[in-house]
Structure formats: structure tokens, C-alpha cells
Design a protein around this nucleic acid. Structure first.
Lengths: 147, 147
DNA sequence: ATAATGTGTAACTACGTTAGTTACACTAGC
DNA sequence: GCTAGTGTAACTAACGTAGTTACACATTAT
């Protein structure tokens, strides 16, 4: 289980940037939408900036902006930007090397874990921020579907 | 990132049970191999028991046993037994419903997250405990490969 | 019967990670 | 220069995990 909400909140932030197309968005505005704190938002923006997903305009009237088109941002890019670790954790303390099982269990587990993680990341690479933004917009005007 | 080593240690335990085929294995013996504490091992065995993967023989000479053949235990069964949560966490506090993005972001994220999680679980369903045990055994006698 | 061995479970502790919070130096526009 | 913002660091509170201990209970062996 993932104990972090950074991925969900980061996608929230990015979707908000898409919806305010081109206008710099303040961390306070974002925080009000995500129901959190401007400090938390700025911390996430900082991580997203390091991965080249957002940029920011300093000074009065400033705020956050997308650094590239939403269609070029894959969910896996966002995930990697804010979830540094990997999906599986090995033993906290290394197993007993004098036991036949302990000596080789980790090496034996790695391939299967790697395959699962690769499948996970591949799926996250199939969806782009633009699709999320479109989905959110569509839900905002439900009658557009019926009529 | 997963902060828990339960999945890896559980597979260690189960592989050890395979390697001691049929003989009850004590939590103390397992703990010595996994380099942890008998209490931790028993806690994991308890979770594995709830999912029907292991059983235990009480009393002197007792210990843990596989509850079904290793070829019938998929890694996803083990994962589900000891990692109750899901891969993605949503916002800690619900987003602002008065914001167009806040009102719909979670619903918009769910499908993509669900697809990634499904792909992950499907991959974990492809590998079985018997394969892990075989891989460990093979690494224990490396010359068997060359000769 | 009784002692010895081992499970099952609960309680508590130590530790790490996360999010919330505050503070402050710094930057850009008015 | 004043105002509105960012970027970053520090601290706190809450939570989950693993380590640890303890003890009631079950089974086997003597």
C-alpha cells in the first residue's frame, strides 16, 4: 500500500494548471482547491519543477505554469517525479547468508517484482495529463453527454 | 513507494516452508533465516493463515506448514494476504467540491489508477511460489547449470 | 500427570515517512 | 518602495511498520 497522496495531489495541481490555461496559478489558489496548505503545494511544485513538468513565474502576479503541453505529460512522468521509491521493499535487514534460502531469496524475487513494476509503469505511461483534464471537464458539464 | 517489507519476508517464509517439504518449521527457525524476530514471523504467518496459505501444527514439534501445493500459490495471493491497502492513495482530506477540478478529479483519476493496479496484479498472478522456490534452489547449486 | 516445546495474540517501543504549519529570504510588478 | 508571490528550511503531529516482550493455550514426550 502506498502511504502517500502526492501522486493524486500532483495530478490535481497539474489538472488545475491545465484548466487555467496559460495563466499563472498561485499556490494559495491551488491549496484552496486541493483542500490543503500552500506550503504543501509549493513543496510538490518544487518536485514537479525538478522533473521539468512545471515552471513558475516569480513576483507579484506570479504563480505556477505547465512547462510543456498537457498531451506530452504522461502519468508515469508525474509518478516518478513525486514517488521516488519503488513498489517493493526487500527485507529491512539482510537475510541470513548461511541459509540456502536466505542467501538467494532476494535475487530470486527480483525478476518477478521487476515484471510487475514494469507492467505498472507501462500502464501509467499510456495515460496523459490531457486525458485527465478532458475527463474532469466532461464531468463538470454532464448534460453535454446527454444532449 | 511501499514502506512495508511484508511481501518479501512472506515469500521468504513460504519458500522456506517449501524447502523443508512437509516438516513443520518453527517461527524461531524462520526468524533466523529471515534475520528478524519470531514475533514478526508469527504475525506474518497469522496473516497468511487467514488467507488459507499456511496452517500450523500446535504444541511441541509443531510449526508452520504450507496449506496447499506451492504450484497453486500465486504471488498475487501472497501480496493480497499481507498488503491490504491499494497502490494509490487519494487526497488526505477531500478536495474542494466547489472547484470544478476539485469536484471531479478523483473520479477522473480512478480509471487510470485502476488500469495500472490491474496490470500490476495480473503480472503478480503469473508467477507461482513453486517457481520462486525452484529459482532459489537453482541459485544454491550454481554448478548444476554449467555441468 | 507433568514438563517441555511451540503457537497465537496483545501490548508497547523505536523509527521513518508524510502532511501540516510557520517563517523568512528573495523576486518581480506596480 | 510596497505588494504579491515563490522557494526552502525547520518543526510538529499523525500514522504505519517492525522489533520486542509477555503470556495464555495447545500438543507432544516422558
Amino acid at each position: 500500500m502506498t502511504t502517500s497522496s502526492r501522486f493524486a495531489v500532483s495530478l490535481h495541481i497539474l489538472t488545475l494548471l491545465v484548466s487555467q490555461d496559460g495563466q499563472p496559478v498561485t499556490s494559495e489558489f491551488i491549496a484552496a482547491s486541493a483542500n490543503t496548505n500552500p506550503g504543501v503545494v509549493r513543496r510538490l511544485l518544487s518536485m514537479l519543477h525538478r522533473s521539468g513538468l512545471v515552471m513558475s513565474q516569480l513576483g507579484a502576479g506570479g504563480g505556477a505554469l505547465l512547462a510543456k503541453p498537457a498531451a506530452q505529460i504522461r502519468l508515469i512522468d508525474v509518478y516518478r517525479a513525486v514517488e521516488p521509491g519503488c513498489l517493493f521493499a526487500m527485507h529491512r535487514s539482510p537475510p541470513n547468508p548461511n541459509c540456502p534460502v536466505g542467501a538467494h531469496i532476494q535475487a530470486a524475487l527480483k525478476p518477478a517484482m521487476g515484471r510487475a513494476e514494469a507492467a505498472f509503469e507501462a500502464k501509467l505511461a499510456e495515460t496523459r495529463l490531457s486525458e485527465i483534464a478532458r475527463s474532469v471537464a466532461a464531468r463538470g458539464r454532464p448534460r453535454a453527454r446527454a444532449g
